[in-house]
């Protein structure tokens, strides 16, 4: 089975992100493979191990995004492709979905597309399902468990009230939840292979599409208002005394 995983490069989750001089800055924090996408890579590799075929990892981004692709290669993906074009600088989720749809078609013979839950920078969580829709494939979102038997996918989807068990034939798109299990670490051999990998770059012309229209604009990104918190430390001679004071204070706040 040929599988595609769509990933994004983002600032590390431990980064202190601020707006400085109108630009988003994450200081000297590294850019990494989006943590949610690591689960998508893991799930894709598990499926490949069960069903055979190749796992191709795709990312839309600048030249630096090759580093995120290399992480996925080091984890065990077969090949990586960067999609990069200046016309995509302010692309919204739907425009990216159209680009990914064209790229998945160009890879050819793909039967399953994997996505992370959302990217931890824009926190949109919609690109995967939009790509699936444009491909005409069903979306099995937030998969907590994926099984493949007799040409059929059986997936447990996570919802607020519990899990829904769904079945469908290929092709299909999946987004992966953290319940799938910890993503593997890149192996030593994987890292060596990834460091030598030549990652091709496709632009829109290579995909044979015009720049897709973006309709959602982000006129302003700003720092949230500083929270003025005056911390009151509660002290006392015994846990009971502390509890008495603290409970009285909490009840005064009228939040219960």
């Amino acid at each position: 089975m040929n599988i595609v995983v769509c990933v994004k490069q983002v600032p590390d989750s431990a980064a202190k992100v601020v707006v400085e001089g109108g630009r988003v800055s994450w200081g000297d924090a590294p850019l990494v493979l989006n943590p949610w996408d690591e689960y998508a890579v893991e799930a894709a590799l598990l499926l490949q191990e069960a069903a055979g075929g190749d796992v191709t990892v795709l990312s839309v981004g600048g030249e630096s995004a090759k580093e995120a692709l290399k992480t996925a290669l080091a984890m065990g993906c077969s090949q990586a492709i960067l999609i990069s074009d200046p016309a995509l600088d302010a692309a919204d989720s739907q425009a990216i979905a159209r680009v990914l749809c064209a790229a998945i078609k160009k890879v050819g013979g793909v039967e399953a597309a994997f996505f992370g839950r959302q990217a931890i920078d824009g926190d949109m969580g919609v690109t995967g399902v939009q790509t699936a829709h444009l491909l005409g494939w069903p979306m099995l979102g937030l998969a907590a468990r994926v099984e493949f038997e007799n040409g059929k996918l059986r997936v447990e989807r996570s919802f607020e009230e519990g899990r829904q068990i769904v079945e469908c034939q290929l092709p299909a798109a999946l987004s992966i939840s953290k319940d799938i299990g910890e993503p593997r670490y890149p192996s030593f051999m994987g890292i060596r292979k990834a460091s030598r990998a030549e990652i091709p770059t496709w632009d829109l012309a290579a995909l044979g599409i015009e720049a897709p229209v973006s309709v959602v604009r982000w006129p302003e990104v700003f720092n949230p208002p500083v929270r003025e918190v005056k911390t009151e430390m509660i002290e006392g001679g015994s846990p009971q005394e502390i509890a008495e004071k603290l409970v009285a204070k909490i009840l005064e706040e009228k939040v219960l």
Binding site: K230, I234, E235, P239, Q240, I242, L246, V247, L251
Partner: peptide
């Protein structure tokens, strides 16, 4: 975490949390 907290207690959660449960019991 204390920088964001309205109220802070420096102490052992194993002593403080059960005491809180008892106290809320009484007060509520």
């Amino acid at each position: 975490i204390f920088k964001l907290a309205r109220f802070g207690v420096v102490g052992d959660i194993y002593k403080i949390v059960p005491a809180l449960t008892d106290e809320f019991h009484k007060r509520l």
